[in-house]
Design a protein around this nucleic acid. Structure first.
Lengths: 94, 94
DNA sequence: ATATTTGGTTTATAAAATAAACTGGTTTAT
DNA sequence: ATAAACCAGTTTATTTTATAAACCAAATAT
């Protein structure tokens, strides 16, 4: 009756991050922090989880002298997001 | 940018229960347990939370000699569910 | 020179979800 | 009649998760 909701995506912050990355080729830590309004600590932890799951890639580099962490969604992440949205529909209709 | 997701509804089991009650006038404990596939303990706890929040009413009675717990969604619960669905759309589009 | 800001990570705490164990009563089998 | 199994839940304990607080290194500003 109800599809299982991927616990990795069923989290407000992780879902927001994935939502941004679904429509953005790439996004850096600072941008994600601004858009989601999260704390740096929380974002750091959740990015790790998404990365561990293979849903995103996290690339650390420098922009001039400042560190810059760039995130991108993977194919597997895209698929998982799509499946999550489909599963949600079994709960909220449409 | 992203709407806040009501934490009471952003839970797989509670959302499933609310989803059932949105389309069913009433549903008893046993039915909810069957439809959601949850354990009795988990269901009991989550029904309490929904009830505490005023999203559902829980009525205990008997059907012959067997106890029977009947749940119904409240107006406030309906509204909250609607708001939750709207908020979700800010994450999943559409 | 030292204080502050930037861009994070790590660790600790609070809250949630879930499962395991228990209760009160009923039905079924012996 | 008594014990065993079962039903409908509740309570308590355990695990997982989310979140915040504290910390760190480097760069910039005062």
């Amino acid at each position: 009756m109800f599809d299982k909701l991927d616990p990795l995506l069923h989290s407000e912050l992780r879902l927001a991050v994935m939502s941004i990355l679904m429509g953005a080729e790439e996004a850096d830590f600072v941008y994600l922090r601004q858009q989601t309004g999260s704390t740096a600590g929380n974002l750091s932890v959740q990015l790790d989880k998404l990365s561990e799951a293979g849903y995103i890639t996290v690339e650390k580099g420098f922009q001039g002298k400042k560190p810059r962490t760039t995130c991108r969604i993977t194919d597997s992440g895209r698929t998982a997001f799509g499946n999550y949205v489909d599963a949600l529909r079994s709960y909220i209709g449409k």
